[in-house]
Nucleic acid binder design. Structure first.
Lengths: 121, 121
DNA sequence: TTAACATTTGAACAATTGTTCATATATCAT
DNA sequence: ATGATATATGAACAATTGTTCAAATGTTAA
């Protein structure tokens, strides 16, 4: 059911109007990149564990997160850096201890929506 | 500020109570794995574009999605398979055309929350 | 100062990922 | 049948990722 009968050249698309309409509503490359990055920040089990733990307790230090999750301090520290770079967590250094917490309530909403999805499947 | 003075062995953790409390609230491995997988499904720009397009138009075929996004049919088909495996999209084959749509409204909510996060940054 | 501790960092590694290309399958029209 | 079209698929490839290990910071206490 080709709808581009008006064109002499055979430019192919199945439903011309849909394509035009949706194409007009698309956003720029940066938007899709940032959106993907946001989800990617939560796309690893170690990171979902860290975020989940920080949903239970406002502030946690690296060592305690490692204890809770059952991994090495190094692995946690690396992942916390990723979360920091993606602005999902912030930190507060007191002496030799670095306390991490979720950056804003937005993160909680997004994360909670993901949990709802998993729990209702 | 060690709080495990009662132990003779030097088991180290910074805040014993927090660790015990949060550890008790943690969920099983499968939960964190599934949660990560859900976010991972939306963690690639090509896939966020596909999902965004399907938020604008109920049903779209592979070729039209490729036109809208500006990629090859093959790349789109591969990604649609990923989205299919992760139960984010379903399809409806009519003749030689396969129409894809979002699997349920839950996906829209999760996706919309991600968009809100990106737009408000 | 020295030792112990909390965290960070860089290199290395295997594992996973997304695209491309060529090819295969399936449907429709002639 | 043949050719055109729509989609799917497998192999190959570079690129990215997460962990481990060893070593480096930086802080506190003795």
């Amino acid at each position: 059911m080709k709808q581009n009968a008006t064109n002499s050249k055979s430019v192919s698309f199945i439903e011309k109007e849909k394509v035009r309409s949706v194409t007009g509503k698309m956003r720029n490359e940066r938007f899709f990149h940032d959106l993907a990055e946001t989800f990617k920040a939560m796309s690893d089990p170690t990171r979902t564990k860290i975020i989940y733990a920080l949903c239970q307790e406002e502030e946690l230090c690296v060592h305690d997160i490692a204890m809770i999750i059952g991994t090495t301090n190094s692995a946690i520290s690396h992942q916390l850096r990723t979360l920091r770079n993606m602005k999902l967590v912030r930190y507060n250094k007191v002496g030799k201890v670095t306390y991490y917490s979720l950056d804003d309530l937005h993160i909680n909403n997004l994360f909670a929506e993901g949990i709802r999805h998993v729990d209702e499947k």
